[in-house]
Amino acid sequence: MNLDLGGPGPGCSAMRVRRLAAGELSGAEMERTVAHVAGCARCAATQREMALEQEQLRRDVPFPQFAAGVAEKLAHRPRQTFVARWAPLAAAAGLALIAGVQVLRVPDDSGIRSKGAASAQIFVQDGRGIHELGLAPVSEGARLLVSLHPAGRKNVSVVLVEPGETSVIYAGAAVNGPLPQAFEWTGSKAATLRIVFADRPIDPAKPPRDADVIELPLHR
């Protein structure tokens, strides 16, 4: 039995049908392709397959899930804690940790704790797209989103601390990944995003003694 494995046919090409749908063809090539597809059963089958792909995508990976996953992977550096990632960068920039990130462990009275350190990242959307903020200034109008890695901690509070005022961004269960809400920082000079992880519900004004506390500086 001779088996045809496929390949381009006379005027037929799955990729050309895709390019037509994506608006990538123009002029004579577009006209030729439109005319061909209109009377070609094989290309019509490709179009049906493309429609099924669209349905499958929207069902399996809706845009919010896709965007969150891409943003998280964009900033993901496996097997390193937040401090391990940022301390060398801060040192290289001559900023030391005072301008970088501080993770503070409030002393635990019991002195026993086996969980790894919780960490967090800030994603920013600005004119450059979506990326991890790092030590860069926050541009006007930029949207910020905090992504958490609670390392087994059950509760978290995320608070924006500015001179003379404090705003609670989130307080509740420690989600693993991006918070459900982004925010826009409208302050003018500098602020600190304080993230507190603990095993019991947190009063943002008075973190428990055995909490993990992460402070992320924001500046213009």
């Binding site: 919010p64 969150a68 959307q125 459900p180 982004a182």
Partner: peptide, 15 residues
């Protein structure tokens, strides 16, 4: 809450 504006929908809202 003077210093921030919350955008519902997280990253999807951002985008």
């Amino acid at each position: 809450v003077k210093a921030l504006r919350v955008i519902p929908g997280g990253l999807a809202g951002m985008n």
